[in-house]
Structure formats: C-alpha cells, structure tokens
Amino acid sequence: MTAEVTRKRTRLDRKFDKLRDAEEAGLLKRSKMNRSLRKMLGNRLAVIGVVVFLIIFLACLLAPVISSYDPQMTDLTQMTKPPSMQHLFGTDKLGRDVFTRTLYGGRLSMLIGLGSALGAAFIGVLLGCYAGYKGGLLDQVILRLSEVFMSFPQLILVIMLGSIFGRGLWNLVIIFIITGWGAVYRQARAKMLSLREEEYVQSMKAFGLNDFVIAYKHMLPNAIGPVVVNLTLSTAMFILDEAAMSFLGLGVPPEVATWGNILNAAQDLYVMQNYWWMWLPVGVVVSLFVISINCIGDGLRDSTDPTQQG
C-alpha cells in the first residue's frame, strides 16, 4: 500500500506520530473548555497562583471555623508566646492569637482590596463603556473628570476624608475607588473607541438598536477582558496600599486587625528582631496572596490576549 521510504526519522515525524496517537486515542476532541481557560491552565504560574489564592481566601473566609479564638480577645498572661500547638503563629503583645488575627485580618484586607478594585472597575466600566461608545461632550467631560481624580494627590484625599468622616475601613475603600476608577475608565473607553468602528457595531447602529443595548450588551463583553485583568492587579495593589497607609498611620484604625495593621508591628525594631512570629508569617501571607493574585492576573492577561500565541 505504501512504499517504504527509508529516511531518518526527524523530530517533526515524532511530533506528528504523537499527534496521531493522541488523535486515535480520542484525546484531541474539541475541548468544551473555553480556549482562554485552557491557555490559562497551561500556565503553571497561574495555576499555582489560583491554588495559593484559594487556600488563603478560603482560610480567611472560614476563619471562625478554623480558629476558636476571638481575634480581639486579650490575655495578658499569654503575651508574646512563640508559636506552639495552641497558637500556631504565637501570640502578640496583648496575648492575642496571631494566627486568628491573620485570618480575620485577611478578611478585611481582602474586602478592602477586592471591594476597592470592584468598585473602581464598576464605575469605570459603567462610564467608560457608554462614554467611549457615544463620544462627544459627555466623553470629554468624564475624561477631564477622570484626569482630575487621577491627578488628585491620594495622600491629601486619604488624610482629608479620614479626618472629615473619621478613619475607617469603608472610607479607605471609597478613597481607593475615587482615585482608582479613572484608570479603568480610560482603559474601557480606549477599547470601546476601537470597537465602535467594528462592522457589527455599525450594523447594529444601522438597525437602530438602543445605544445602551449596543454598548452594554453587545460591545461590553468584547471590551471586558483587559478590565478583568486590571481588576486582579489592582486588587493586589490596593492590598499593598492598605498596608502602606497603615504604616503612615492613615489607614484603618490600628485596633482593627487588618494585614497592614498586623504587619505594622514590625515597625518596632525590638519586635522585628525578637518576636519574628508577630510579623513574619503575616508578611509571608500578605506577600504570597499578592503574588498569587498577580500571577493570576498575568495568566489572565496572557490567555485573553489574542496577539500572543502559544
């Protein structure tokens, strides 16, 4: 049937052989999985990121189940105890369980990070989508407005709002949203600007579809990719911002356990050198969490970016 051709088998041959074997075994069926998701799963870093993220996220979410301690409960007889079976991460200067505080602190830090990122994304997309599609005066006004808020020094805003409304978790979230939405707006708007020249948009317009429907129902799904990527990255950024604000004494009131506030214990050189358990585990958890989010974000970006093959 086929003539035997004798030649050296190349790498290409082997590759094709493998492909053929795979096909015969039925492995190459069209996957039902989303292509982006598949690409993402192929990215080892991103997968590790998701796993780490989920571990920390779930641990914090289930804090009351995992730990029997109250994060605020002081016990002066149990001060500054090193890690043990009773206290996995030891206790702090007031005898509070550091592990418990880390878990509960994580809840708030995540709330701040995710809440701010979501809030900023929501406002940014809502405005960017419509303004980018419609253009005109509205777009110009919002664009200027976004510039105003982006160039507004964050520090002033933090101190000002902090002292007007009192320092608190939600104020921090509001401040991060105020300073953060502009970037999302510009991103969404830029994407919409290029999308609106697309033929499908033009044809829908020609059909006389409602602007809102075109913008939010048909164009938005095509523009949301980079925003989602940005969402993850800005979550990470806001978590770090929270820590920095705590360091400057402008964050959430110090009695509230957040990652930033717990980590602040390391400001004290004595604590830093002698009670490593008060800051090192928290520091590692914060860094791991932020790294994992960044890895996910990177993976998302790579997998949703059609210009990058492979």
Binding site: R44, L45, L240, M272, W279, V286, S287, I291, N294
Partner: peptide, 24 residues
C-alpha cells in the same frame, strides 16, 4: 519563570517592610 516570580516578589512585598529589612 524564575525572573517572573522574582519580579512578582519585588512588587508584592510591602515597601515599608522591605525598606526596614534592608536597614536592619
């Protein structure tokens, strides 16, 4: 991958924390 991870770590450690460790 190593470089990516290193970069991630660089950007993921709170600045003040990194600074204090460097001083020490």
């Amino acid at each position: 991958n190593l470089l990516t991870v290193a970069g991630m770590i660089g950007v993921s450690i709170p600045q003040f924390f990194f600074g204090m460790v460097c001083i020490v």
